[in-house]
Structures are given as structure tokens and as C-alpha cells.
Computed example of a mutant assay.
Amino acid sequence: MATVTLKGNSIHTSGSLPKVGTKAPDFKLTATDLSTKTLADFKGQNLVLNIFPSVDTGTCAQSVRQFNKEVSSLKNTKVLCISHDLPFAHARFCGAEGLENVVSLSDFKDGSFGKTYGLNFVDGPLEALHSRCIVVIDANGVVTHTEQVSEIVDEPNYKSALEALS
């Protein structure tokens, strides 16, 4: 269990992020076209999992915009933007913003991603949503970097995430 804050108030997650150096746990998420995506669908690619509570909040939206900009010049790298938002919300946001360099995925069906990765909030006003996290996975499926953002309204450390790709 991790403890983070929301505007200074403590809230807790369901577990801990995967450890650096371990194989990334598999997942089953829903894409904007309602297809199911798993870790195997991205085999051989470097991945940045940009995980957040909702694309309809300012900080979450900014993280999607920033990673869309940063990843456009990186080869063999995908940014997966993951939340409980419905796939329609992800599609609406990325379409309205013209964002084409990120893959939007939803954990709305069964919440198994958040449980497996240990990042669901278990209390507080955002209970059951995902905490703001970054997980970087190399082309071999190994976790090379994680960040549990300690204050949920803060943006992740983009530089550290991107450096973990090299």
C-alpha cells in the first residue's frame, strides 16, 4: 500500500507498483475502438504507462498532452494513457486535442489493471480510481522505471520517465 496526498490530505492505494527489474504484469484494457489490448499487443516496443484518475482533469489532460509531444520523436516507443474513463471519453479528448502519438486505454470493465499494478485508490474522494503513476517497460517486457506521484494534483516527472527509455 502506498500513501499519497490529494491537496495535502492522505489517501491510500491498493498495493505497490511493480518493482524495477521485474517482468511487467500482463493486463487487459479496452481501446477507444472497444477492442481488448494486452501487454502482448505491444511486444518488442518500449512502453510508458501514463496512469491517472481521469482525462477530464487538468493535470491528467496535461500529462497526455506532454507525453504526446515527447514521444513523437522516439522510435519503437508507445505511451499508453490508462484510466477508468470510458473509451469514449479518451477518444473525445484525444480527438479534440489532435493527439495522435498516445494510445488511450480504459480499465473500466473489471478494474483488473489497477488491482494487478497496485495503484487503485482504496479511500478518499477518488476511491476506486487510479492513482497518478508512471511505469516504463522496455522492449523485453521488463520494468525499468516507476513513479508513484506523491501529490495527486502534481504532474509526473517526465524527464525521469523518458531517461528510463535509453
Rank of each mutant, 00 (worst) to 15 (best):
M1G: 13
M1A: 14
M1K: 12
A2N: 14
V4G: 10
T5A: 01
K7H: 15
G8E: 07
N9V: 14
N9I: 13
S10G: 02
H12M: 08
H12E: 12
G15T: 06
G15D: 05
P18L: 12
K19E: 12
V20L: 04
G21W: 08
T22M: 10
K23N: 14
A24R: 07
A24S: 14
T32F: 11
D33M: 11
D33Q: 12
L34R: 13
L34S: 11
K43V: 00
G44S: 12
N46Q: 12
N46V: 13
L47K: 05
N50H: 04
N50L: 04
I51K: 04
I51P: 07
I51S: 03
P53R: 03
S54V: 07
S54E: 01
T57W: 04
G58L: 02
T59L: 02
T59K: 03
C60E: 04
C60D: 06
A61W: 03
A61R: 06
S63C: 11
S63H: 14
S63T: 14
V64Y: 05
V64W: 04
F67T: 10
V71S: 11
S72W: 01
S72E: 14
S73V: 10
S73W: 00
K75C: 04
K75T: 15
N76G: 07
N76E: 12
N76V: 07
T77K: 02
K78W: 01
K78E: 04
L80C: 09
D85Y: 04
L86G: 05
A89W: 02
A91I: 02
A91Q: 13
R92I: 02
R92W: 07
F93H: 12
A96Y: 08
A96I: 11
G98Q: 05
G98I: 01
G98N: 09
E100P: 01
S104H: 08
S104T: 13
L105D: 08
S106D: 01
S106M: 01
D107K: 06
F108M: 10
F108L: 10
K109W: 02
D110S: 08
G111P: 03
S112Y: 00
S112G: 09
F113R: 01
G114T: 08
T116Q: 05
Y117P: 02
G118Q: 10
G118C: 11
L119S: 06
F121R: 11
V122F: 08
L126M: 15
A128V: 15
A128N: 15
L129A: 12
H130S: 14
H130Y: 12
C133S: 14
I134H: 07
I134T: 15
V136F: 01
D138C: 06
G141C: 03
V142K: 15
V142E: 13
V143S: 08
T144L: 02
E147V: 03
E147W: 12
Q148G: 09
V149L: 09
E151S: 12
E151C: 06
I152D: 04
D154N: 14
D154G: 01
P156E: 07
Y158A: 02
K159Q: 14
A161F: 08
A161R: 05
L162T: 00
L162K: 01
L165C: 05
S166F: 00
